[in-house]
Nucleic acid binder design. Sequence first.
DNA 1: AAAAATGTTGACCGATCGTGCAGAAATCAT
DNA 2: ATGATTTCTGCACGATCGGTCAACATTTTT
Lengths: 210, 210
Amino acid sequence: MATKGIQSRNRQEVTGRILSAAERVFAEFGYAGASISRIAAQAGIPKSNVVYYFETKELLYRRVVGEIFDIWRAAADSITIDNDPIRALGDYIDTKLDLARTRPYGSKVWANEIIQRAPIVQDYLEDELRSWTEDRIVVIEAWIEHGQIRPISARHLLYAIWATTQHYADFTHQITTLNAGVELTNRQWDETKTAVKDLLLRGVEKHGDG
Amino acid sequence: MATKGIQSRNRQEVTGRILSAAERVFAEFGYAGASISRIAAQAGIPKSNVVYYFETKELLYRRVVGEIFDIWRAAADSITIDNDPIRALGDYIDTKLDLARTRPYGSKVWANEIIQRAPIVQDYLEDELRSWTEDRIVVIEAWIEHGQIRPISARHLLYAIWATTQHYADFTHQITTLNAGVELTNRQWDETKTAVKDLLLRGVEKHGDG
DNA sequence: AAAAATGTTGACCGATCGTGCAGAAATCAT
DNA sequence: ATGATTTCTGCACGATCGGTCAACATTTTT
């Protein structure tokens, strides 16, 4: 009774491989350019097997987008009214830059989807992202009212953090090319974290040249 | 002898309509998802006519990417060693945000291409973008040496400016959705310019709370 | 006015797409 | 061991893709 049997175990393993392959292929070819057969080849199984587990290309795609959305949402757990603003925002930037490095394909899928006007996941934007964003803005504006940070635009601060952190995922190829064609080293990723926080949070801190 | 005749006039008009339609369709569907017939329909001409003027989908695409690349390059004319740093960078941000508003499709095409690892325009990156970027970094580092700005990372400052300004083009749909579903007004675009410069240039200025 | 060059268009080709489906293979329940 | 259930796979379909081509229309050149 402890296990669910070999079939269930395989089901989870195969669907996991499909999702991972799909995230990569959707990122590298876009929704229209990603074919089910390419995803299947990337996962090492026949095309029909992908359809068996996810029914349609669109349903598979929604699962991929939903995963990255949930991960990003969890990354902002530090933004609460009781936390220190600079530390909370710094942690958020660090976490998002870590995700830019470890899950670049997910970020690219999201970027592709938004660029193309969210034809598939518009409901995510209107239901979950909108309320989520408003909640964070309330927290940041409370920090301002309490005199903990400078009176900047909370909304545009969030947008700037999203833009900058996701840039290091979505534009990895451009950054690598401008880095003599080699991927960023551990040290360079640390420098990136420091530089991004330095640039963005200077404009937030109360005392300019602390 | 003053004119080139009716044919030349039409040639320019038709190719212009095709390029404009292609920029939009490539942005909204990605390279693979953009079909020649859809571009033709957007331009109001038959598919064969698009092929007649641009031969292949790839050549048409390269023309579209080349256009936006040239426009962006010109936007950074203000970044020279003789200009005041804060004013020069502020002008650059203003100009790029204007372009985000007036040429959002071009920005999206570029984003799509880089996300997909520049399969078509890798030579642009290695030849033109690389040297162009190094030149701007030299200017910013000279400003630092002359004590005109704080010693920030010139490279990451450039990346932050690119990321943030292009975010308002590439993620227009997300921003609109988070703006109660209506496009940004003139006033909101002005607020955006102010907020972006406030956030990014605070970290650059020599005297923190001027 | 005739010839040449340029522009325009629909028909067509082989390839690939998403997906439906029948049946084989493997696993589970009894 | 046997039947039920789940998993897996090859094949076939209509649609669409990028691109070719020959026929036709218009403009330019002679």
